[in-house]
Amino acid sequence: MQSENTIVAYASELEKATFYKKTYLHVAIAILAFIIVETILIHTVPMEWIAAMVGGKFVWLFIIGLFWLGTTLSEKMSFNPSREQQYLGLGLYVILEAIIFLPMIVIAVALTNSAELITQAAIITLFMFSGLTAVVFFTRADFSFLRTAIIIGGFISLGLIVAGALFGFNLGLWFSVGMVILASVSILYQTHQIKNQYGTQQYVGAALQLFSSVMLLFWYVLRILMSRRN
């Protein structure tokens, strides 16, 4: 008899299908929740506060710091044995993403006086995510080696972001392209991990990991589209 939290790679076909269905359903729910929370923030947060988020370098660094701490807490909660804690972790992360996205969403809408850029970025992100996921599921390639590259790339990108905020220089188009590549690599790695390392009861934590990479990809795809309008 298999244990309740069987590793997905060793689970039955029915258990695998159920796990994947729950994982991607939770990713979709997280995205929908993000849209709802973002819409509420846009209509309730004063423009002065939004401007202050990006206008002061130390304010933005403080927000990045809180986001990092919140992300660490959310991820820990999402893998807690308590299902309630798992959902609290996922919900907290959705709210954090909505807050940090708020200034860029407002600027993107202002550039075209519509949601055109956001829609374009969302479609591109969806197609890229679907393609990357298909690569993992329909090939037997081992993407576990990507972990080192993701860690190194993450530290380098964080250092550049902090330096850019402190010294006021624009990281430019090529940085955004690099981050799109990093997010894509992360999706490949995390999807591979979900297939081979996660337990069948860890679908909330798996969803959070995928959602975080999808949002990172969306952020920099949107930045690239916005750079073409400036």
Score class of each variant (00 low, 15 high):
Phe175Val: 09
Ile150Asp: 05
Arg223Tyr: 05
Thr39Tyr: 07
Ala207Leu: 12
Glu38Leu: 14
Ala9Asn: 10
Leu173Asp: 00
Ala141Ser: 13
Ala98His: 03
Ile161Lys: 00
Ser74Glu: 03
Ala121Asp: 06
Met53Leu: 11
Ile63Cys: 10
Thr139Ser: 15
Ser78Asn: 06
Ala98Lys: 02
Gln190His: 13
Ala17Val: 05
Lys195Asn: 04
Ile105Arg: 00
Thr148Met: 14
Asn170Tyr: 13
Ile194Glu: 00
Ile50Ser: 10
Trp49Gln: 05
Ile151Leu: 13
Gly91Ser: 09
Gly154Asp: 02
Ser78Asp: 01
Phe101Trp: 06
Gly65Tyr: 12
Ile63Lys: 13
Met47Phe: 08
Phe62Trp: 11
Met215Phe: 08
Ile151Trp: 15
Ala51Phe: 07
Ala207Glu: 02
Ala33Val: 09
Leu117Ile: 09
Ser82Ile: 08
Lys21Phe: 08
Val180Met: 12
Gln202Arg: 09
Glu48Asp: 15
Glu15Ala: 11
Ile150Val: 15
Leu208Lys: 13
Thr18His: 10
Arg223Thr: 06
Thr148Ala: 14
Phe211Thr: 09
Ile224Leu: 13
Ile187Glu: 01
Leu158Ile: 14
Thr18Trp: 06
Gly89Glu: 00
Thr18Tyr: 07
Tyr20Phe: 15
Glu4Gly: 02
Thr39Ala: 07
Phe167Pro: 11
Val135Phe: 15
Ile156Pro: 04
Ala33Ser: 14
Thr148Asp: 12
Ser82Phe: 01
Tyr93Thr: 00
Gly178Ile: 10
Val162Phe: 12
Ala30Tyr: 07
Lys57Asp: 08
Tyr220Gln: 04
Gly178Met: 08
Asn5Glu: 05
Val204Arg: 07
Ala183Gln: 04
Leu111Pro: 04
Leu210Phe: 10
His43Val: 05
Met104Cys: 03
Ile42Pro: 02
Val27His: 04
Ala9Tyr: 00
Ile161Ala: 11
Ser130Asn: 09
Arg147Val: 02
Phe211Met: 04
Ser82Leu: 07
Ser130Asp: 08
Leu73Ile: 11
Ser130Thr: 15
Ile187Asp: 00
Glu97Cys: 15
Ala206Lys: 03
Ser12Cys: 01
Leu222Ala: 12
Ile50Val: 15
Gly159Ala: 12
Ile123Leu: 15
Val135Gly: 06
Thr148Ser: 14
Ala98Asn: 04
Trp219Leu: 10
Ile42Thr: 06
Phe169Glu: 14
Ile50Asn: 09
Gly91Thr: 09
Val185Gly: 02
Trp49Asp: 03
Phe175Lys: 00
Ile42Glu: 13
Thr71Ser: 14
Ala183Arg: 05
Lys21Ile: 08
Leu217Arg: 02
Phe137Lys: 13
Tyr24Asn: 15
Ala207Asp: 01
Ser213Gln: 13
